[in-house]
């Protein structure tokens, strides 16, 4: 009987941890981190810090919105960082930012379609298909720039990424817009809800007249397109482009999406909670910097959070 008691205590702890680290409960975790930051590092709340953290967060946030879509249809998109990287090259090497973004959007539709084709038609696991796409895109990036990736960001993108509309930073505004639109679309419109159901139970969706493959395609294309927007903002925010631009965004976006309640089994996830997940990751990164810890600490911290998010999302083992 004592064994049973410990099990249920452990379950309860797990339940609380799960609630705090997934879905809307992520905001509790965020509050804890923000309070801890106020105590540990008062200059965490310096105006520059907050502004920069939010701008940086919104780039990850926009990409995470796409990741949530893909996770919803039982996929995962590892190619978002590479797509952002390609965008950075496009906007710095082509005639103007506009042409660059248009070209990147074209590539995004192709990349998203290719990912979806592999996953939907060929049955390739999304991990493998999109990882293959990473190699293709990074290879293409090197070919395009003949290996020497290094450029100044175009002035208009810098203006966009560092600019504000009234009191709100433009990237943050775009992030909020993407989150709000996605939330509304998936919860209040037939086509968005069908996408969710396509992931929740594809066979049921198909037998209910839903074009499941089409929804999967849409999710991958949305993800690639949002990666372009994220990539363009990242270019402007950084001010320069190098080989490593965007790297890490794929894992960060998956972590944030998982923290936001998305699951590999599909059909789950909240864009609002994913926003919370992004803020948690960003606050942690900033905290590491502000506290003057070695930058490697950041990776350890992120890794721990990712693993925590993953384990909490595995279905509890049945007795």
């Amino acid at each position: 009987m004592t064994a049973e008691a410990t099990v249920s205590t452990r379950d309860r702890v797990r339940g609380v941890a799960n609630a705090a680290l997934s879905g809307k409960g992520i905001f509790i975790a965020l509050a804890v981190i923000l309070i801890a930051a106020a105590i540990l590092a008062p200059n965490f709340y310096a105006g520059v810090n907050v502004g920069n953290t939010l701008r940086r967060a919104s780039i990850l946030g926009i990409i995470t919105v796409g990741q949530v879509f893909v996770l919803m249809v039982r996929g995962v998109d590892l190619s978002v960082a590479a797509m952002a990287g390609i965008t950075a090259i496009a906007v710095t090497t082509l005639d103007s930012s506009a042409v660059g973004i248009l070209a990147a959007l074209g590539i995004a539709v192709l990349v998203g379609s290719a990912n979806a084709w592999l996953v939907v038609r060929r049955g390739v696991p999304a991990f493998v298909a999109t990882f293959g796409m990473v190699l293709v895109l990074t290879g293409a990036q090197l070919l395009w720039t003949r290996g020497g990736v290094s450029a100044q960001a175009p002035a208009d993108l810098i203006g966009l990424a560092r600019g504000s509309l009234g009191p709100i930073a433009i990237p943050v505004l775009l992030w909020l817009l993407a989150t709000a639109a996605s939330t509304w679309w998936t919860s209040r419109t037939p086509s968005g809800r069908r996408l969710v159901l396509s992931g929740a139970n594809p066979r049921m969706a198909q037998l209910s007249g839903i074009a499941v493959g089409g929804k999967q395609w849409l999710a991958f294309v949305i993800s690639a397109v949002l990666a372009v927007i994220g990539g363009a903002l990242l270019t402007g925010f950084s001010g320069y482009v190098d080989r490593s631009i965007g790297s890490g965004l794929e894992l960060d976006s998956i972590t944030a999406a998982l923290l936001g309640g998305a699951r590999f089994k599909g059909g789950e996830g909240s864009f609002v909670a994913a926003l919370g997940g992004v803020l948690v990751l960003s606050a942690l990164s900033t905290l590491v910097v502000v506290l003057g810890l070695r930058p490697e600490t950041q990776n350890i911290l992120k890794g721990v959070v990712l693993i925590l998010a993953l384990t909490l999302h595995l279905p509890a083992r049945r007795r």
Partner: peptide, 13 residues
Amino acid sequence: KGMGLALDKPVSL
């Protein structure tokens, strides 16, 4: 369960 329902989704949906 396998083909007729998305078990985690609400009744209303």
